[in-house]
Design a protein around this nucleic acid. Structure first.
Lengths: 148, 148
DNA sequence: TATAATTATCTCGAATTCGAGATAAAAAGG
DNA sequence: CCTTTTTATCTCGAATTCGAGATAATTATA
């Protein structure tokens, strides 16, 4: 327990535990989503447009952390599934917006509340206070890793 | 700050922060590794064999959390790079072990200490006490998500 | 023992992601 | 106004991962 070599490997161990915990969590989140014929990236894109309204494709990519070539692919898929539509921007012809179709809006109105419930179930291993603490600590970790 | 709607979305927020923090961290870890011509999965496989000695391919897959078809692919790559070698198991002819080559052992002897240093730098946003707390909380989260 | 179930690995095709580079439009600098 | 730089999106090919199913060996069961 208080083995002196322990502190050497705390970072390694934290990395492993972090990776595994998020893998377990993702598995559950994915289960919640894939029965709708969506993968996590597609859901994240819909979620972003749902909360912020129509968005330039490039902004979406930044938000869901994927490369520009990948966001093109995801938007293609969502357009095929009729959940979003591309809409050229009148004031800047480089920009294409993605906007929810009626279909997409109806879908999100229906599934988003359920999704939040599912998330609360998945994260029920911690109480609210613990979640708040972990959010702060993760931000610290993330900021630090970002600016190294 | 103490907005009453806050607690509703704590799980959602924790998921986002968790995802982003790990993404930032992974970017750094990947930088540390890719200059060796390895990707994170390949490194994890080498790390596992390095610490545990030669292992059945299937055990490696379990440890690094990838599907059986993927571990075949990764072991192929590492064999091409001459860092590991396949070795049939004499007592069970279904099993193939993967073992480090001299090359692979030399590589790991050289890079593993450096890797640990890099990890300590990456995780330097938290002190040891905070890391220990986070490890425990993440385990709770992971166990819970696992057994839902 | 013969049959069924399980286990370990592999093959194959599909899905998702990336990076490099193309194209086109807008902005900045002279 | 012309050139250069930046920005937004897309195309293409490669890398990585997965799931379904094949094969072969081992173990369990009738």
């Amino acid at each position: 327990m208080n083995n002196p070599t322990n502190s050497d490997d705390l970072s390694l161990k934290l990395f492993v535990v972090l990776t595994r915990a998020l893998a377990s969590i993702r598995k559950r989140v994915e289960e919640d989503i894939k029965c709708l014929g969506l993968n996590p990236t597609e859901f994240a894109v819909l979620e972003f447009i749902y909360s912020k309204g129509e968005q330039p494709i490039q902004k979406i990519g930044q938000k869901v952390l994927i490369a520009s070539s990948s966001i093109t692919y995801v938007v293609d898929k969502l357009e095929q599934k009729q959940f979003i539509r591309r809409k050229p921007c009148p004031s800047d012809r480089r920009i294409t917006h993605a906007t929810l179709t009626d279909n997409g809006l109806k879908l999100m109105d229906e599934i988003f509340p359920k999704h939040k419930d599912a998330m609360n179930t998945i994260f029920d291993g911690l109480d609210n206070k613990e979640k708040e603490v972990m959010i702060e600590q993760l931000k610290k970790l993330g900021y630090h890793a970002e600016k190294i």
